[in-house]
Simulated scan of single mutants.
Amino acid sequence: MAITLKPLRDQVIVVTGATSGNGLATVEAAVHRGAAVVATARNETALEALRARLSADGGRIAVCAADVSDMAAVERVTAVAVAAFGGFDSWVNNAATGTYGTLDQVPIADHRRVFDVNYFGMLHGSLVAARHLRGRGGAIVNIGSILSDRAIVEQGPYGATKHAVQALTDTLRMELEREGAGISVTLIKPGAIDTPFPEHARNFMDQPPRLPPPLYAPSVVADAVLFACETPRRTLYAGGGGLLASLLSRAAPRVSGRIMELVGTFAQQKPGDPGDPARRDNLYDPRVDALRGTQNVHARTSSSALQVQKLHPAVVMLGVVGAGIVVALGRPKDARR
Score class of each variant (00 low, 15 high):
206 D>V: 10
245 A>D: 09
228 A>D: 08
210 R>V: 15
203 N>A: 08
247 L>R: 04
225 V>C: 14
243 L>M: 13
226 L>H: 02
246 S>F: 03
189 K>L: 10
178 R>F: 13
185 V>Y: 00
186 T>F: 07
172 L>C: 10
185 V>S: 00
206 D>S: 15
221 V>K: 01
213 P>M: 14
197 F>L: 15
175 E>R: 15
248 L>K: 09
226 L>K: 01
237 Y>W: 12
246 S>P: 08
184 S>D: 03
215 L>I: 13
175 E>N: 15
230 E>W: 03
241 G>Q: 03
209 P>G: 13
242 G>S: 07
202 R>S: 02
230 E>H: 04
172 L>Q: 01
187 L>F: 04
193 I>E: 04
209 P>F: 04
230 E>Q: 13
217 A>N: 12
208 P>S: 08
181 A>W: 03
213 P>T: 13
245 A>T: 07
235 T>P: 00
234 R>L: 13
226 L>A: 03
198 P>V: 06
239 G>N: 04
236 L>E: 00
197 F>T: 12
208 P>D: 06
235 T>F: 14
218 P>E: 09
228 A>E: 05
174 M>Y: 14
180 G>Q: 09
193 I>R: 03
221 V>S: 02
248 L>Q: 07
238 A>T: 03
188 I>K: 01
226 L>V: 06
178 R>L: 15
230 E>C: 07
248 L>I: 01
182 G>L: 02
206 D>M: 10
201 A>G: 10
219 S>D: 15
173 R>L: 05
236 L>A: 05
192 A>R: 09
216 Y>R: 05
230 E>D: 10
218 P>I: 01
204 F>V: 08
237 Y>M: 09
249 S>V: 06
243 L>D: 00
244 L>G: 11
197 F>Q: 09
180 G>S: 10
239 G>D: 03
228 A>I: 11
193 I>M: 11
240 G>F: 00
220 V>R: 00
177 E>A: 11
227 F>Y: 15
190 P>D: 05
179 E>K: 04
179 E>N: 07
181 A>V: 02
198 P>C: 07
181 A>D: 06
228 A>S: 11
242 G>P: 02
185 V>T: 07
189 K>F: 01
177 E>W: 04
190 P>T: 02
227 F>M: 11
238 A>K: 08
179 E>H: 08
215 L>Y: 08
185 V>R: 00
230 E>S: 14
182 G>T: 05
247 L>Y: 01
234 R>G: 15
232 P>M: 10
236 L>V: 05
240 G>N: 05
172 L>W: 03
247 L>W: 02
211 L>Y: 09
206 D>I: 08
184 S>E: 00
178 R>S: 14
238 A>G: 03
217 A>H: 15
214 P>C: 14
239 G>K: 06
